[in-house]
């Protein structure tokens, strides 16, 4: 954590609490059957290449660095824990974090498409949370839009001088928000408003989804840094991890 980081985050937090002290909102994955067939198929088609690319990359990582399995397990377990935590938000509703930031920082975004897919499948089959028909859309939001945003934020903030931890914090935070922005966009495309169309609908969904999600995004980012600290303390990051911020950097 460093000075630049605080200069950017403190005003943002102040603005947020002022802005959403009255809003009501709810956010989560799109439920089973709640995307029209056309959009369910479109998002499955969009998500599949990322999933296949992720499986390919995952196999390569494990082949080249068998010792990476341990940290891979931690990244997946972290997603498991965080996506099971339904946290309260200042808007008076609950939602859950995604936990994708950690694995993204360690293995890059594409590997997370596989881990996200597994978690979403588990929740759709066992918990009636999300759904199989909407798994393509939810997968794209949580396991593609989130991790890729997190990745680029980590790279960019690293370039402008954030410490590794601050960069990962920012990446995890904005990656979480990107997931729910993507969900809003998916819902807006499928359900445009009668007046104002997709844009009006998107504004509505985004307003509804994002306010709930912001404190959860901060929580997620905090927990991500906790685990990064643990990895660093026990030198678990190993040789195979290329932190986006400078290869082989110590955290």
């Amino acid at each position: 954590m460093n000075k630049k980081f605080f200069l950017l985050t403190v005003p943002a937090a102040a603005f947020y609490f002022w802005y959403c002290s009255s809003a009501t909102a709810h956010a989560m994955h799109i439920a089973e059957g709640f995307l029209p067939l056309k959009w369910a198929i479109i998002w499955w088609v969009v998500f599949l290449p990322f999933l296949i690319g992720g499986i390919y990359k995952l196999r390569k990582v494990i082949e080249e660095h068998p010792e990476a399995k341990m940290v891979l397990g931690i990244s997946a377990a972290f997603v498991f824990v965080l996506s099971a935590l339904k946290l309260p938000s200042v808007t008076g509703s609950t939602s859950h974090p995604t936990g994708m930031g950690l694995g993204t920082a360690l293995f890059g975004p594409i590997v997370m498409s596989v881990i996200g897919f597994i978690v979403l499948l588990f929740q759709a089959l066992l918990l009636a949370h999300g759904g199989l028909t909407t798994l393509g859309a939810n997968g794209f939001a949580m396991a593609v839009a989130g991790p890729f945003t997190a990745y680029w934020i980590i790279v960019l903030t690293g370039k402008i001088g954030f410490s590794n931890r601050a960069a990962i914090f920012s990446g995890a935070l904005l990656g979480n928000l990107a997931t729910y922005l993507a969900t809003s966009l998916q819902l807006a495309l499928a359900f445009p408003a009668a007046t104002g169309g997709i844009i009006a609908s998107f504004q509505k969904f985004a307003a509804v989804f994002m306010t709930t999600q912001i404190p959860l995004a901060v929580s997620e980012a905090l927990l991500t840094v906790v685990v990064v600290n643990l990895l660093a303390k026990y030198q678990l990051q190993g040789k195979f991890i290329k932190f986006p911020v400078g290869e082989g950097t110590k955290i």
Binding site: M70, V71, A77, F78, F80, V81, F122, L230
Partner: peptide, 16 residues
């Protein structure tokens, strides 16, 4: 789900 995740993390961190 959370317990499984936490167990895996704790196991690996403890091992390390």
């Amino acid at each position: 789900q959370a317990a499984i995740g936490a167990a895996v993390i704790a196991y690996f961190v403890g091992l390390a």
